[in-house]
Design a protein around this nucleic acid. Structure first.
Lengths: 402, 402
DNA sequence: CTGTTAGCGCGTTCAG
DNA sequence: CTGAACGCGCTAACAG
């Protein structure tokens, strides 16, 4: 098209302002940096006027080039689709605002390649620090960050081989809280559903804590379920209560289907509705599954009491919970919650709507603290890597109570 | 990993590389810019090695400073909490990736002051363009953008007094689609619920289209509802069907409560469950409301047929829909959908879960197109401001069908 | 108090 | 093909 890519109006530079104000660039620079005390009120007024007249705005790029710091920090988010991330972001933004930082938000969209690319981009833009909610990968792609590289703080999960500050949920306590809640409410067949562990520490920790509580003192756990690449379930028990771990690889529809099928068998085996009134609730005609008395898994009936087990699902995070809820609804109809309880870490907006019990993470504070840590790091703090574990809050809803 | 990482994070500069490669900066620069044809293979190899050895990464800031373009564009999002925004973002990112742009995502979090601040920040960082999903404000804060300023393209809504490309949903068609769907399915008492119009064109357009369809040929609309500052409802009718507009100011709890109260009266007045089987569905004991035969509004019974009206809510977007759903569930229990149908523009993740009918926006494409427009603008295209209206897709779910 | 002089890291003539 | 020199917009000494 037009050969002149030049904008209609080239933005004014510091030189323009100096000329307009009839002075040198230095005074302008001083004015911009708030060194008012060293400027005569008269000059100051002229500068002010010139700036106003030219609609001048200092070029942060040039400024950063000279000064060596551009007040930019990178915020690498693994998955913005996860409400957790957006909430953390709010905290990050607030903190940045307070500290005069400008967050560059980068969204890896669950793609390792994106993560790598953005990280590289961030360093070429010479951000002063990075707060990263990493994908489950090796430290490889995070090379430029951390130790020898630019300051970094991890969010939600730590990365193997990378020493850096980390702030996130107290996974251990949260998983215990949830498990105990389910146990206390009489559920004795609990399935912990989680995405592939890979390198994601938070998933590992949550599952480990769950398993630990389930196995209790006299652990008689065993490995079970489908064999093969990472799928399948671990099983343990405590005081007659059964605990299983199910891996749900959301990225692979086929794997999801297989895992859900296993779950279905367990639910069907658990038999009838969980409550007394439940049967009256049939929004009939939808339910695809029969109230099967099929006892294939052998876990449906408590061998001691002879009563049918009460089954509950413990989702390791919101995406998993959503996947489960959608499936259960499709299979058991709108009234699926009468058949199986659902508890989830993370508190998505639809939780209240569907009455699902959750453990809400202190997302805002996580984001805020992360920036504070990073800021200290940027300012030169050299202490050893710190961990900040914040507690989750159990929000009991209809799904798991009565 | 041969050489020791330099002490104080001192990144290698082009000069370092030149020295290391035993050549001048120019050659390095050429290498970086892919002008391989003018470099002897031998020199090229040396440069490559030097870069590798020093882990050199060009400084985009300095580069941009010189070249005048830094490949940065701003993406100003009004509310990341709205899934719509995140989805649009995906499209934006994909397009940026394809075009070699780097999006700086700024989240105004519904605060006008934030919007202003970020816009200013973006210009000081000399972004080459901005794609903005503006808050409902006057063109004032968008001054630096558009006409005389940096290229901009609007998303979802246009801004009064600001001429720029715009890409978004075909609001008119979408609202018609939804309204007709409700009408066709026998709903004859339809409430269009929308956030305050303010300067948000999309809300205005949606409501206008709704009203137009409802008033049909023989329009006998009237203004009604609570008086006062922007609250209240407009009422119109078509072929015996009633159409109301309810403004829901989500930012003000008190206003929300008042508006919802008005809605409740209408729903109560509409009387019993909407379907034949509905009564059998009572997840009883929860429903706070009685199957009131109260006829206060006078609209509950069709004066012609004498039959109770079938009431439906048409939410102008997802946040509104969520607010409505939460309220309805709290008031009428888990089975609220038996009493009132809900249709929403936007297709949040919980829609499928709750069976709410929606009109899904082509969010990804909206984002993608926005960047394409912006890119053209950046490259100097000078055509008059364009509008790109993309169609929405009706997704019928249980809520509104049978 | 104020102007002058160097660069920051890089791209771009323009002569070798 | 290569390198020296200049300047982008701005800040930081260093003199007046």
């Amino acid at each position: 098209m037009s050969t002149t890519p030049l904008a209609t109006t080239r933005r004014a530079t510091i030189t323009d302002v100096a000329r307009e104000a009839g002075t040198g660039k230095t005074s302008i620079s001083r004015y911009l940096n708030g060194e008012m005390s060293v400027l005569s009120p008269e000059l100051r007024a002229r500068i002010e006027a010139a700036i106003e007249r030219l609609d001048y705005q200092p070029n942060q790029m040039a400024r950063g080039l000279k000064r060596g710091r551009n007040r930019l920090i990178g915020m690498l988010v693994a998955d913005l689709t996860n409400p957790y991330s957006v909430e953390v972001l709010q905290g990050v933004e607030a903190a940045c605002h307070a500290l005069g930082l400008m967050p560059l938000i980068c969204h890896a969209a669950n793609e390792v390649e994106m993560e790598r690319r953005y990280l590289q981009l961030l360093t070429t833009y010479r951000v002063e620090g990075v707060i990263v909610n990493a994908l489950g990968v090796r430290e490889e792609t995070l090379r430029p960050v951390g130790d020898g590289g630019i300051p970094a703080v991890l969010v939600d999960r730590s990365v193997e081989g990378l020493v850096a500050d980390m702030v996130g949920l107290d996974n251990r306590a949260a998983a215990e809280l949830g498990t105990r809640h389910l146990l206390d409410n009489g559920f004795d067949d609990i399935w912990f559903v989680v995405q592939p562990f890979e390198q994601v520490s938070s998933r590992q920790l949550r599952e480990a804590a769950f398993r630990e509580v389930m196995s209790g003192a006299g652990a008689k756990g065993r490995e079970g379920g489908l064999g093969g690449k990472g799928e399948g379930s671990r099983t343990g028990s405590k005081g007659g209560a059964l605990g299983h771990t199910l891996v749900l690889n959301l990225a692979e529809p086929a794997a999801v289907e297989r895992a859900l099928a296993e779950l279905d068998r367990a639910i069907d085996a658990a038999g009838g509705p969980r409550g007394a009134v439940a049967n009256a609730t049939g929004n009939a005609g939808r339910s695809a599954a029969r109230s099967a008395t099929d006892n294939a898994t052998g876990n449906a009936i408590d061998s001691a009491t002879g009563k049918p087990r009460r089954i509950a699902l413990f989702a390791a995070n919101a995406p998993v919970a959503l996947c489960l809820a959608l499936h259960l609804k499709a299979r058991y109809g709108a009234d699926w919650q009468a058949r199986v309880a659902l508890l989830s870490i993370d508190d998505p907006e639809w939780a209240e709507l569907t009455g699902v019990t959750t453990i809400r993470q202190p997302t805002y504070e996580i984001g805020y603290r992360a920036v504070e840590f990073l800021h200290e790091r940027i300012e030169g703090v050299q202490t050893t890597a710190r961990d900040c574990l914040l507690p989750g809050e159990l929000i009991v809803r209809a799904s798991t109570s009565r």
